[in-house]
């Protein structure tokens, strides 16, 4: 008997060693092959190119980017653009998702039906198609920039995007930089492009459908008995929600919602199809300018993995806190 265990142990070790060895061998072979291929064809490799001037403009950015800056700065701008659309997207999706989740639980039949219809429509159509549709609506159905509609004083909407007043830091505090009609464009103030708007709306609308389901499932998970007990204690509907249902539902809502936030951020990579200069778009342009596919894709992968790990770490932290609080109570 003991011999058999010992033998099984040895076999297990052998198999694992074999697997790891083969994997290393395979990885080594692939790396060697790529390296050899690149060298044999005289294709430049290495990350040195990141320090060279990018030589292309990026349509919109949070920083003052210009073509003379280096590739790594272009990547940074791309990453900032990804966050610039993902973070407001998270917020918008959360609000919308919570509203729809509550609507689906409403005693009102029409609200319930609307909520269900929303979820079923937006979940069952590919995000890519939704982004394209939003973009088409924004660029085709809006007037050209010369005839921009000023739907609020200082707010211009046109094919070139949404122009709005922004606190101007250069001017005295409290003053706003107002957009005005220029020769070809709206000048002054701040603008967001239709590409940005399309990605923002598309991501938010799509993720909201999933978040609504998560919210609904979380609330439904709180047993009916508790709600009824709270009602018997004389708590109002609002109080029941605030003090009984939500605290418990949140524990079930937060982990999947966190994953959904991560999904939204990953999905922002689809921005490339509507011409929004996110990280993928910048990587794609760089890849084409320099021909350094391996490096550009490696950067992409590293960034997204870092985002995933960060999200996972945050969720783990949240769970740990919940557990601590749970045991203290």
């Amino acid at each position: 008997m003991r011999r058999r265990f010992a033998e099984a142990g040895r076999r297990a070790f052998l198999w694992q060693a074999l697997a790891v060895g083969l994997l290393l061998l395979g990885g080594w072979w692939v790396a060697g092959r790529v390296e050899g291929e690149l060298a044999a064809r005289g294709i430049r490799s290495g990350f040195g190119f990141l320090l060279q001037p990018a030589g292309f403009e990026i349509g919109e950015s949070l920083f003052d980017f210009h073509a003379g800056l280096a590739y790594w700065q272009a990547f940074l701008v791309g990453f900032a653009n990804t966050l610039r659309v993902a973070l407001p997207g998270l917020l918008l999706a959360t609000v919308l998702g919570a509203l729809i989740g509550f609507a689906r639980l409403s005693p009102n039949f029409l609200l319930r039906a609307l909520g269900t219809a929303y979820v079923e429509v937006f979940r069952n159509v590919p995000l890519l198609l939704q982004l394209l549709t939003w973009y088409f609506l924004l660029t085709e159905k809006l007037p050209p920039v010369a005839d921009a509609v000023e739907f609020l004083p200082g707010f211009f909407l046109s094919k070139s995007g949404l122009a709005f007043p922004l606190p101007a830091f250069a001017v005295a505090a409290g003053e706003l930089a107002w957009p005005q009609r220029g020769l070809l464009n709206i000048e002054g103030g701040a603008t967001v492009t239709p590409e940005y708007l399309a990605v923002l709306l598309g991501l938010a609308a799509y993720s909201a459908a999933y978040l609504a389901e998560i919210v609904r499932a979380g609330i439904l998970s709180v047993s009916r008995g508790q709600v009824e007990a709270a009602a018997a204690l004389g708590l109002t509907a609002r109080q029941r929600m605030r003090w009984v249902v939500l605290p418990q539902a949140l524990r079930l809502i937060v982990p999947p919602a966190g994953n959904q936030y991560l999904n939204l951020t990953k999905n922002s990579s689809l921005a490339v199809v509507v011409g929004y200069p996110d990280l993928v778009s910048v990587a794609n342009t760089t890849l084409n300018q320099t021909g350094q596919a391996v490096e550009c894709i490696a950067i992409l992968i590293a960034v997204y993995l870092a985002l995933s790990l960060a999200t996972a770490a945050l969720l783990a932290l949240y769970n740990a806190r919940l557990l601590r609080r749970g045991s203290a109570a």
Partner: peptide, 28 residues
């Protein structure tokens, strides 16, 4: 359209002229 020499030329030319252009880059 991205993936062309066009993006870079556009930038070069406008910079040389001291003008600013806003490229809207599409992958297809």
């Amino acid at each position: 359209q991205s993936g062309t020499t066009t993006e870079k030329n556009l930038t070069d030319y406008f910079r040389a002229q001291g003008m600013k252009a806003k490229p809207v880059v599409f992958e297809s």
